[in-house]
Design a protein around this nucleic acid. Structure first.
Lengths: 120, 120
DNA sequence: GGTATATGTAGATTTCCGTCTACATGTTGA
DNA sequence: TCAACATGTAGACGGAAATCTACATATACC
């Protein structure tokens, strides 16, 4: 337990659990470390944070149905300012969920190829 | 466009886009409605919101590796108070991502069977 | 029954993040 | 070149959510 920051009360609690139920918590620090140190943990978290907004999930669901959307179409769909659209799409792009392509004045967005998160 | 709340400037913008690039936006309201009215939209959003927290993602990643975790083990792993653990696990349970089982004084959590979201 | 213990709930506080306005940058056409 | 237009960036603001302390409820044991 040296790797986990727990007080004495919690330590006693874990020991009682072990005696009561026979659950061995010696692997707990390793379990935590395995889960958290995975290089994909940060990437998973970033992707989930990006998708966990109603407006952004709506855009992704629409992109799943339509090849591309222009920024102004996204704006019309979401009912927010262009600045907010830009902010949201920047978040999705940074998380690797969408890709953008500029054609003259117009910016088009599409789903990234490697999006493995289920969409409604 | 009658179903979307857009001002005249945005309407002109969409028309210019149509003339410039030949993108037909007549299907946009339907696209929005299809995406948003899906009964799974709300469920997807709730699940993504539940998973998009670092502490909660860590718990799920740990549960993916270990059959069950006791509340006190979760507390030791996260380094927060028991009340915060209870709050977080309540969120995961409400989203259908974990199930809980009480054995005497102890509460054990495990991944729900139908979790289809990739975990690190 | 009373006490100790584990965890759920409520409310206050702190932190995080969506949204806007204003400004900045890039593209187009006269 | 300049003006119009599309969209990216910065900072302020307000609401949502994580976190804590305190209280409440349930279980176990003497």
């Amino acid at each position: 337990m040296a790797d986990l920051d727990i007080d004495q009360a919690l330590e006693r609690r874990l020991e009682t659990l072990d005696e009561d139920v026979g659950t061995c918590c010696e692997d707990l620090p390793r379990l935590v470390e395995d889960a958290r140190s995975s290089s994909s943990f940060t990437e998973h978290l970033e992707r989930y944070r990006a998708i966990a907004d109603e407006k952004r999930l709506l855009v992704l669901a629409m992109l799943a149905r339509s090849k591309t959307l222009c920024a102004c179409e996204v704006q019309a769909a979401l009912g927010v300012t262009h600045a907010t659209v830009s902010h949201h799409m920047g978040t999705l792009r940074a998380a690797g969920l969408v890709e953008s392509e500029k054609r003259g004045k117009w910016v088009f967005y599409r789903l990234s190829d490697d999006v493995n998160l289920p969409l409604p």
